[in-house]
Amino acid sequence: MPDDPLAEALRAARDGDRRGFATLWRGLHPGVLRYLRVIAGDHAEDAASETWLQVIRDLDRFDGDLAAFRGWLFRIARNRGLDTVRRRPTPPLPAAASASDAATLTLENDGTAWAVALIAELPIDQAEAVMLRVVIGLDVATTADILGKRPGAVRIAAMRGLRRLATHPDVRDRTQPSRQGV
């Protein structure tokens, strides 16, 4: 149901409608940006801009429904993200620092940034699988296509990622107070 307005927006954007494109962007940009945070870190904003500019440029050549568009969008996002990292590699943050970042985010109550930062700490194949499969909600086939893996490998990577996240102290710490609250 929530995809219906986006499907409508996609049709309008392909016809050149400015408001249609704005709706599409508002609906999909957060997912793109969060996914890119996982694979491109600090370059996520730049990579997201490049992704959307490429979408704008090639939109009239795209032919498909909203599901196909999401697959196309995240394939572009992945390529732009990896390009950006290759162009301007950033030294990987020490685990302690990122953990403290996550802790800070928790204190600031920015749940989304905290969650994405935790997912980003996973091994990259698990992190990508969790983001695309679980957070964004792409189906296995599309995710496997984007990552260049077999669907079985994607399932296993997502499962292992989630298992690791569940054992993460921050997740468990956060679980306790909420349970106490309930």
Binding site: R34, G111, T112, A115, I119, V135, G137, L165
Partner: peptide, 8 residues
């Protein structure tokens, strides 16, 4: 909770 936060 984590996943919901990431999907927020």
């Amino acid at each position: 909770r984590l996943i919901e936060a990431a999907r927020a």
